[in-house]
């Protein structure tokens, strides 16, 4: 680990903190909803610690809370998680080591850390990625502990408007992303694809399908990001 790596990690950690705070409350909602549905507090906490993927957790919980079985819940979670496949492929060239080491490093990917660690040229700063994920993992775990044990005091998270946090969390990541030339057109196209598919496909598929809009990157205005990286300080 070089001095530059340490600095990336520290910067990532700081950038991850606000996301960690919001993540705490989102994860708290998960703890409340999971125990409401019939999970024991330890089970809710185990989900947060072992799965650590908000959209997949909420998607699978809503399936089983609605009376669905394990296969349907796993399918819903995997569809929500499928975007990590795209993110993992993008990240792969920036990860050193053998397959096992790379697989382990890939576990650190969450949406915000992946987006913040992107250098904008298709490569990633992996230490920034790890730094950004760490505080979020800790607060994610802590939030569920509080939600699972204090659920009775909190009541229905929707009553408190806590369901608005999840999308705002992602908008915060997006705002930085949209500053790149061409990114807005790609984002808008992704939104149109996703909304058009909502009535016709199971939840999760519209999100994965939206990634097709990234192909517009081939014709998007702006300089070649790879060439840009060569000129970057």
């Amino acid at each position: 680990m070089t001095e530059q790596d340490r600095e990336s990690f520290r910067q990532g950690f700081r950038q991850g903190l606000p996301f960690g705070v919001v993540g705490f409350v989102i994860s708290l909602s998960f703890g409340v909803l999971a125990t409401d549905a019939g999970f024991t507090p330890w089970q809710a906490i185990a989900v947060a610690g072992l799965v650590f993927a908000g959209s997949a957790q909420f998607a699978s919980l809503s399936v089983v809370a609605g009376g669905g079985g394990i296969p349907a819940a796993l399918a819903a979670a995997t569809l929500m998680n499928s975007r990590f496949l795209a993110m993992g492929i993008a990240l792969a060239p920036s990860l050193p080591g053998g397959p096992v080491t790379r697989a382990a490093q890939g576990q650190a990917v969450v949406d915000s850390s992946w987006a913040l660690a992107s250098r904008g040229d298709g490569t990633f700063d992996r230490w920034r990625l790890f730094g950004t994920t760490l505080p979020q993992y800790l607060t994610w775990l802590a939030g569920t502990v509080v939600g699972a044990y204090a659920g009775d005091l909190i009541g229905d998270p929707e009553r408190w408007g806590l369901d608005a946090l999840f999308p705002v969390f992602f908008v915060a990541i997006l705002v930085a992303e949209l500053k790149r030339p061409g990114a807005r057109v790609v984002a808008l196209t992704g939104a149109v694809i996703a909304l058009a598919l909502v009535p016709w496909t199971p939840p999760g598929i519209p999100i994965l399908a939206a990634s097709v809009a990234a192909l517009l990157g081939l014709v998007a205005p702006g300089a070649d990001p790879v060439a840009d990286a060569g000129e970057a300080p």
Binding site: E177, V186, A187, G190, I193, S211
Partner: peptide
Amino acid sequence: AAPLLTAL
């Protein structure tokens, strides 16, 4: 990232 996050 942009279309994935927007779709989410």
